[in-house]
C-alpha cells in the first residue's frame, strides 16, 4: 500500500514539475508587464506574421496529410496490385520520419531542394522558391508529421477487414460509394484522432522548420522559431506571450483528443 502511494505521489510530482510549473511560469511571464505587455508582445508585426505562418502551415499540412495518410493506409492494407514485399518496404518507410531527427529531415530537404542544388535551381528559375520559403516549411512539417495519420488509420483498417467492403461490392457499390458509406464510418474516429495529433505536432514543430526556413523575421518565421528568437534576444515577456498562445491551443487539442479517444473506443 505504502509503495503504491509513493508511486502515485511520484507521478503527481513529475507531472507537476514537467507540466504544471512550466505552464504557470509561461502564464506569469507573459503577464509580467500586465495585459498591456501581453497584447503588445502579440501585436508586434512579427508576432502576427509568425502566428499567421504557423496557421497556414498547420492547415495545409493537416489537409494534405489527412488525404495522403488515409489513402496510403488504404493502399497498404487493401490494394492487391501492390506486392507483399513492396508493401512491407513502404510500411517501414512510413516510420522513417519518426526515427530520423526533425533537424536531419530539414537538412535533407535543404540538401535536396536548396538553391544550390539542381532541382532547387530548376524551381528557382521557374520563379518558385522552395527552401527558405513557405513551400519548404510545409514540406518539412509534412515530413515530420507524415507517419501519424497512417499509423492511426492502418490498424483500424486491418481490424475491420475487407469483408464489409466486399459485401458492399457484391451489392453493387463501387469504391467511392463504398469508402464513404462503409469504410469511412469505421475509420472516422481514428482519422479525427490523427488530425488532432497532426495539428498538435505541426503547431509545435521547430527543428525541421528552423533549418529549412532560415528563420527570417516577417518572412519565414513561425510561432515556435519566433519564441526561440525572442528568448535569444532576452525578450522574455514576448517569448512567453507567444508561447502562451501555443500552449492554449495545445491544451485545447489535448481535451479534443481525449474526447476523440473516447469516441474511438466506443465505435
Amino acid at each position: 500500500m505504502t509503495i503504491r502511494r509513493l508511486w502515485i505521489t511520484a507521478v503527481y510530482l513529475i507531472f507537476t514539475i514537467l507540466l504544471i510549473i512550466p505552464l504557470i511560469e509561461i502564464v506569469r511571464g507573459s503577464w509580467a508587464d500586465g495585459w498591456g505587455g501581453f497584447t503588445q508582445a502579440l501585436m508586434r508585426p512579427q508576432s502576427l506574421h509568425a502566428l499567421g505562418m504557423t496557421g497556414i502551415i498547420v492547415i495545409v499540412v493537416t489537409l494534405i496529410n489527412t488525404m495522403f495518410g488515409v489513402m496510403l493506409a488504404l493502399y497498404l492494407v487493401r490494394a492487391q496490385w501492390i506486392g507483399p514485399r513492396i508493401k512491407r518496404l513502404l510500411n517501414s518507410l512510413v516510420d522513417l520520419p519518426f526515427a530520423v531527427s526533425p533537424v536531419i529531415g530539414g537538412l535533407m530537404i535543404v540538401l535536396l531542394l536548396g538553391p544550390s542544388t539542381v532541382i532547387g535551381a530548376l524551381f528557382e528559375d521557374a520563379g518558385f522558391k522552395v527552401v527558405y520559403a513557405l513551400p519548404g516549411m510545409i514540406l518539412a512539417t509534412l515530413f515530420v508529421t507524415f507517419p501519424i495519420m497512417v499509423r492511426e488509420v492502418l490498424p483500424v483498417l486491418q481490424e475491420i477487414g475487407a469483408q464489409q467492403e466486399e459485401a458492399a461490392s457484391t451489392l453493387g457499390a463501387y469504391s467511392w460509394y463504398t469508402f464513404w458509406k462503409v469504410t469511412w464510418p469505421s475509420i472516422r474516429w481514428g482519422v479525427i484522432y490523427g488530425v488532432v495529433l497532426t495539428v498538435a505536432r505541426s503547431l509545435g514543430e521547430f527543428g525541421a522548420v528552423l533549418v529549412v526556413s532560415g528563420n527570417i523575421m516577417n518572412k519565414t518565421q513561425t510561432a515556435t522559431t519566433l519564441v526561440y528568437q525572442d528568448v535569444e534576444n532576452f525578450n522574455v515577456v514576448a517569448a512567453n506571450g507567444v508561447a502562451l498562445v501555443l500552449a492554449v491551443f495545445s491544451v485545447g487539442l489535448l481535451l479534443l483528443m481525449e474526447w476523440a479517444k473516447k469516441r474511438k473506443e466506443v465505435h
Partner: peptide
C-alpha cells in the same frame, strides 16, 4: 465482370454486416 455487375448475392461466413 466486376462483382458489382454480376448480379450475385453473397452471404459471408461471419455475415460481414455493416455494423454502423
Amino acid at each position: 465482370l466486376p462483382p458489382q455487375e454480376r448480379g450475385i448475392g453473397f452471404v459471408f461466413q461471419n455475415y460481414a454486416l455493416f455494423k454502423h
